[in-house]
């Protein structure tokens, strides 16, 4: 399925602020940022930093106290909340599949309330179940209780995509899954996003997940302050302040290596007859460093997709690359 239906939309937070009644301080404080259409923006921060509040202000489950949020230039406050929500995909950690409905019925929920014709709903549901890797013949008639956690979250994502919304809100969608399933679902979602390109806001408290999923990362501090909004690489190599540096961890240098590929290095010439198995050029520098450590040498051969040797990666090359600052991209809007 290619990018069909509605295209992605730009999301703009314009000094959006939320003060809960009776709370001494704002949950989200003057949040201003722009998420370009089609990108994944990860909202990252510790508990109580307002990231979920920021997310749910977009679909008006939480109403901003002041400021504005615009989707494709239209303020959400001016739109009917129900209609707005039907144009926004919403995925939560608890998944929230309706246990008395089959998988097909769950996915069909929004198209049904939108009054689509039955044939169109059926076709769309099958298309989506195929897309998330759950063959409709096998899974369509099952109930949520008959699926594993990972399968249920796939249904949750299919349900959110059902009416082809230009925007997806995901609130720690993989937080309740075991580490292996989580990693698998992250890969699946990235693959899916390549195809459907929805503007996605993705709440997480896991730095590794943010680096992996985000085109951009917005880091929040307690009190709902946005402290840095940047590409993952920029955040890892140039944290805005001590808070960001501490939050992303002392191993940020290593994490940054997960963003770069061996093939992008200025490799040294290939040795004629290497005595170790070659690394793939598509591996990350993180993996290459790990391979160097375990091999006990300081140089390893690199091969391309066809197994041809293209060069040699060395410890010195990786060290030099790790010290190089990332290209400057986005900033706090």
């Amino acid at each position: 399925m290619a990018n069909q239906g509605q295209s992605a939309a730009e999301i703009v937070f314009d000094r959006a602020t939320k003060v809960y009644r009776g709370a001494p301080a704002p949950a989200v404080d003057e949040l201003s940022m722009t998420v370009p259409a089609g990108e994944i923006c990860v909202l990252l921060g510790p508990s109580g930093s307002g990231k979920t509040t920021a997310l749910t202000m977009v679909n008006r489950l939480v109403e901003p106290t002041s400021g504005d949020i615009r989707i494709d230039g239209v303020s959400v406050a001016e739109q009917d909340a129900t209609g707005l929500r039907r144009r926004i995909g919403y995925v939560i950690q608890q998944i929230g599949l309706f246990p008395h409905m089959t998988i097909e019925e769950n996915v069909a929920t929004v198209p049904q309330v939108l009054g689509w014709k039955r044939d169109r709903i059926r076709d769309r549901v099958r298309e989506l179940l195929d897309l998330v890797g759950l063959p409709p013949r096998e899974y369509g008639g099952r109930y949520p209780a008959q699926l594993s956690g990972g399968q249920r979250q796939r249904v949750g994502i299919a349900r959110a995509l059902a009416a082809d919304p230009p925007v997806m809100l995901m609130d720690e969608p993989f937080g309740a899954l075991d580490p292996i399933t989580r990693e698998h679902m992250q890969d699946e979602f990235l693959r899916l996003h390549e195809q459907v390109r929805k503007t996605t806001l993705f709440v997480s408290h896991d730095m590794d997940e943010a680096v992996k999923m985000g085109d951009r990362i917005a880091i929040f501090r307690e009190g709902g302050h946005l402290v840095q909004y940047d590409a993952p690489e920029r955040i890892l190599t140039a944290p805005a302040d001590d808070f960001v540096a501490r939050f992303i961890g002392a191993d940020r240098g290593l994490k940054a290596l997960t963003l770069r590929r061996v093939g992008d290095l200025p490799l040294e010439p290939a040795d004629a007859t290497p005595d170790t198995a070659p690394l793939a050029a598509t591996e990350t520098l993180h993996t290459a460093l790990s391979a160097l450590m375990t091999s006990g040498t300081d140089r390893l051969p690199v091969a391309d997709g066809d197994g041809r040797l293209v060069g040699t990666v060395t410890l010195d090359l990786i060290r030099a690359e790790a010290g190089r600052p990332a290209p400057h991209e986005g900033e706090v809007a």
């Binding site: 929230g96 929004v110 349900r159």
Partner: peptide, 12 residues
């Protein structure tokens, strides 16, 4: 959570 999911999807 079901009610929240339903509200978030735009059910009245």
């Amino acid at each position: 959570d079901l009610v929240r999911a339903a509200r978030g999807m735009g059910l009245t």
